[in-house]
């Protein structure tokens, strides 16, 4: 078992952790040799599993605990924290509906 890393990250994305951001998190985690768990209060989710991440209902402003174990724990935790704090670095879905309906 490699090192254990625990980091905190606050959700900055206005839409919270939706399907696309959960998918981005899971694919980031899978790039590393590490097990990453996300905790929100009492709830926890395997960060490599999109469905589990969605069950957290992580909204803007929520604080998540990022726990990583394994040889790449540091890198995996850093990648996850960066994604969460940078709003998942995804193009915005904002106003898709408005634009399409015009």
């Amino acid at each position: 078992m490699g090192p254990s890393v625990v980091r905190k990250a606050r959700i900055s994305a206005p839409d919270g952790v939706h399907l696309r951001s959960a998918a981005a998190l899971a694919s980031a985690v899978k790039q590393w040799n590490a097990e990453v768990t996300l905790r929100k209060g009492e709830q926890k989710a395997n960060a490599a599993n999109v469905l589990e991440i969605l069950t957290l209902v992580a909204l803007e402003g929520d604080e998540l605990l990022v726990e990583a174990t394994g040889p790449d724990a540091e890198f995996a935790a850093e990648a996850v924290v960066r994604l969460i704090e940078n709003g998942f670095e995804l193009p915005s879905e904002e106003n898709l509906g408005n634009q399409a309906s015009q």
């Binding site: 206005p14 839409d15 919270g16 952790v17 939706h18 399907l19 969605l54 069950t55 957290l56 209902v57 992580a58 909204l59 803007e60």
Partner: peptide, 9 residues
């Protein structure tokens, strides 16, 4: 957005 996430959840 919270309602969308709760439905997804």
């Amino acid at each position: 957005p919270g309602d969308h996430l709760r439905a997804l959840e």
